[in-house]
């Protein structure tokens, strides 16, 4: 029987979290020894020697009270700042991160690469390259947890959440669902395969491809006849989608929203939630007609619609990418 006592460290976050652990354990051992030591010493030194002893009362010491409030508080503020620093890093995926889409359902993980590879309960990634996951759930809340990477992110129905990591060591690592999701919760597990970049390329080209996400999205776009209204030149009854992703969009009520993944998803499933200024609420809902994977493919297709240079698509260059990074920087939170 094996008895490992410490998890593998296989991402850039893992040493950060481990070092924080050492600090936390250090502070804890210090206080535990201090308190236990004092209790043992006092209990033995001042043990009751006769039944009618009456020790002198000692009521309080302001200096002591302040000391043992302020010193521990200072030490906890280090814990706070250190943990917050790691958390900030974990919530800001780098711009050049490799994108993977994750759809969770009872009780499996469906993972899609941009190039079209689909995986179930397995994810192959290259080491040394940041990987960003954009995730949603088809039913209950799940949670994407890779202990060797020290990362965990809930996967919530009705919204996108993101997480990212950079694997540092080739190997096979546990993927767990960490949020209780029903009968086979403990069966909702899988493996992350971190591979050397050349091995990853070989795996990519060796696997069966289902067409890239954007290509599949284009097919779906045609099947659903989205183009009847969303004409590329802006002449349709609905806004053009060219150059839309990442742009700031003015709504009928005067607000501006950033066209991120969450906005696109909502506009497909609940088109009347946000109406673009100058347009009528004509679009029917596609709730129930498009799967979560389908929505992701449509989003990738819309992302791929980049305006040709110097072509007039009704937007000025200044409007494009008004707010770069925001869509991807924080988990969707509405």
């Amino acid at each position: 029987m094996k008895l490992p006592l410490f998890p593998e460290s296989a991402s850039t976050f893992a040493p950060d979290v481990d070092h924080l652990l050492f600090y936390l354990v250090g502070v804890s051992v210090f206080f535990t020894v201090l308190i236990f030591g004092a209790i043992f010493y006092f209990a033995i030194r001042y043990r009751r020697r006769s039944d009618n002893e009456l020790p002198k009362p000692i009521h309080a010491s302001l200096a002591l009270e302040i000391a043992w409030s302020v010193i521990p508080f200072g030490l906890t503020m280090i814990m706070f700042a250190w943990g917050a620093n790691i958390f900030f890093k974990e919530s800001r995926p780098p711009k050049d991160a490799m994108q993977i889409y994750v759809v969770a359902k009872q009780w499996m993980w469906k993972l899609q690469h941009m190039e079209g590879q689909r995986e179930i309960n397995e994810l192959h990634i290259p080491v040394g390259r940041p990987v960003k996951l954009t995730m949603t759930s088809e039913d209950a809340i799940h949670s994407f947890f890779v202990p060797a990477f020290r990362t965990k992110q809930d996967v919530v129905p009705g919204r996108y959440s993101t997480t990212w990591f950079t694997a540092t060591k080739p190997g096979k690592y546990h993927l767990f669902c960490a949020e209780y999701c029903g009968t086979k919760h403990s069966g909702m597990t899988g493996w992350i395969y971190a591979m050397e970049p050349q091995d990853y390329q070989a795996w990519l080209s060796g696997g069966r491809s289902f067409g890239s996400l954007a290509e599949n999205g284009e097919k779906l776009f045609q099947d659903l006849a989205c183009g009847n209204c969303h004409k590329a030149d802006g002449s349709g009854r609905c806004p053009s989608l060219v150059g839309l992703f990442g742009r700031s969009v003015q709504l009928a009520d005067g607000r501006f929203v950033n066209a991120d993944e969450a906005y696109l998803r909502e506009s497909i499933l609940q088109p009347n939630a946000k109406i673009v200024a100058g347009y009528q609420p004509l679009m029917p809902t596609f709730q129930g007609q498009v799967t979560e994977e389908g929505v992701l493919e449509l989003i990738e297709y819309i992302k791929s619609l980049v305006p040709p240079p110097a072509a007039g698509t009704g937007t000025t260059p200044a409007e494009i990418n008004v707010n770069p990074g925001v869509a991807t920087a924080t988990p969707s939170n509405r």
């Binding site: 814990m79 706070f80 250190w82 917050a84 790691i86 958390f87 974990e90 020290r150 965990k152």
Partner: peptide, 14 residues
């Protein structure tokens, strides 16, 4: 104190 620390809690929560 461990689990109140954000970066640590991400790993150990649940």
């Amino acid at each position: 104190l461990f689990v109140a620390s954000l970066g640590f809690d991400v790993h150990v929560t649940d």
